[in-house]
Computed example of a mutant assay.
Amino acid sequence: MGAVYLGTYEPPKWRVLIVASRFNELVVDPLVEGAKRCLVRHGMDEANIDLAYAPGAAELPLLAKVGAKSGRYGAIICLGAVIRGATSHYDVVVSSMASGILNASLESEVPVIMGVLTTDSIEQALERAGTKAGNKGFDAAMAALEMRSVMDQIQS
Rank of each mutant, 00 (worst) to 15 (best):
L31T: 09
V28M: 01
N48Q: 10
S156G: 07
N103W: 11
T131R: 11
V32D: 02
T131S: 13
V150N: 04
A98E: 11
L31W: 10
T118K: 00
S156H: 13
I18R: 06
R84I: 00
D139V: 01
L39K: 13
N24P: 05
T8D: 15
I113N: 04
M97W: 02
L39F: 14
M142R: 15
G85I: 00
A81P: 02
A64S: 13
Y53L: 10
G67H: 10
A75Y: 06
K36I: 15
L6Q: 07
F138Y: 15
G2E: 02
T118H: 01
G115S: 08
G74A: 01
S21H: 05
A81W: 05
P111Q: 12
I113F: 13
L102M: 14
A133P: 00
N24D: 01
C38V: 08
M1K: 12
L51E: 03
E46Y: 12
I154K: 12
R41L: 12
A20Y: 01
A58E: 06
D50Y: 04
V40C: 12
S149H: 10
P55S: 11
V94M: 04
N135H: 12
P30G: 10
V28D: 06
G74L: 08
Y5V: 10
V82I: 15
S105H: 14
I83K: 13
D139C: 02
S88Y: 03
A47G: 13
A98V: 04
A141M: 03
Y9C: 07
